[in-house]
């Protein structure tokens, strides 16, 4: 189909079986509690490169799986 994500329980499956989930990282440099709260809620690292993220295997085991992906190429590592 398309991009394929490896599921440790089910095997590798096309991206349309999955739901994307971000793993947010609030930078340590932000120290104010409110600012950290806002950053966590709205701001994104949106990195160009290898990112750690979660995908929910909606059509299979219905569990979250943590994977690494290169956001420049959409390659799952």
């Amino acid at each position: 189909m398309a991009l394929r994500i490896p599921c440790p329980h089910c095997g590798t499956r096309a991206i349309d079986e999955w739901v994307y989930g971000e793993i947010p990282i609030v930078p340590d440099a932000i120290t104010d509690a409110d600012a950290r709260d806002v950053d966590r809620a709205y701001f994104h690292n949106n990195a160009e490169g290898v990112v750690r993220e979660a995908w929910f295997h909606l059509y299979g085991c219905r569990r979250w799986v943590t994977v690494e992906r290169d956001s420049r190429t959409d390659t799952f590592l």
Binding site: C10, G11, R13, A14, E17, L58, Y59, C61
Partner: peptide, 10 residues
């Protein structure tokens, strides 16, 4: 056992 999208169903 295998599971995944078949005929658009889980």
């Amino acid at each position: 056992m295998a599971q995944g999208r078949v005929a658009d169903a889980p």
